[in-house]
Design a protein around this nucleic acid. Sequence first.
DNA 1: TCTTGACCTAGAGACGACTCTAGTTCCTAG
DNA 2: CTAGGAACTAGAGTCGTCTCTAGGTCAAGA
Lengths: 129, 129
Amino acid sequence: MSLSIGQVAERTGLSVHALRFYEKEGILANQVHRGPGGRRVYTQQDVDWLRMCIMLRMSGMPVPEIRRYTELVRQGDGNELQRLDILKEHQERVRQQMAQLQECMDLITYKVGKYEDYVNSIASRAIGQ
Amino acid sequence: MSLSIGQVAERTGLSVHALRFYEKEGILANQVHRGPGGRRVYTQQDVDWLRMCIMLRMSGMPVPEIRRYTELVRQGDGNELQRLDILKEHQERVRQQMAQLQECMDLITYKVGKYEDYVNSIASRAIGQ
DNA sequence: TCTTGACCTAGAGACGACTCTAGTTCCTAG
DNA sequence: CTAGGAACTAGAGTCGTCTCTAGGTCAAGA
């Protein structure tokens, strides 16, 4: 099954621009073929790979690092340890990020609680209790 | 107790540049006094406020929204509901962000597991098992 | 006196990740 | 044959958040 850039944009949520940008940045595991008129032809595999890249990006992996990972995959067997290293390092960063976010969340929740109490106390005073 | 910009930088982790930037952006609850020679003089309150702003930033609240919140606080009593709204909205965004991160984390963890298995299987074959 | 170091301002520059523009090609439908 | 729509390229522009530069003030110590 082959897909146009527009279809891929649709099913990944990336823009057409972003897809071309990603390709230029070298973060497509196997290079995209071209159909008649030089148009890009994607496969389901490309879409799957992109979905993973999106996950990596969403969790803050910078484009150059995704490119490094992609290059390893393109090279084929033999460098699994290096790939593992990249993933583990990123995993650790995500872990820290989540811990940080949780800390922020705690503070925000605390503040929300305080303001809610306050607002409620004002409200009940207003209706005469 | 009054602090210089350098001291505040030290205890907040922000750069001196960033502190001036934040001030210019209007995200300091009470404006910073100036000492002899026009130097900024901060109080512990300022540091506390900055620490909260840092939390908000870290969790992705954009500077303009922190400014809006700051302005409400500067205006004083009476707008607690609006403040609460901002905080709750942000809380929701953080919640979503964490869910997303968790999703990414799950994928990464899955991949790490796969690669670890693979690498281990290679390793044990190498030592003749 | 001279130097050092912290501070000041206004404004320019950097960086990452897109996003958009301009000008073109190609296919399909009316 | 023409209009519309999707695709193409190279490269410029945008956005947010700082970060740095240039040129200056000021106080304290050698």
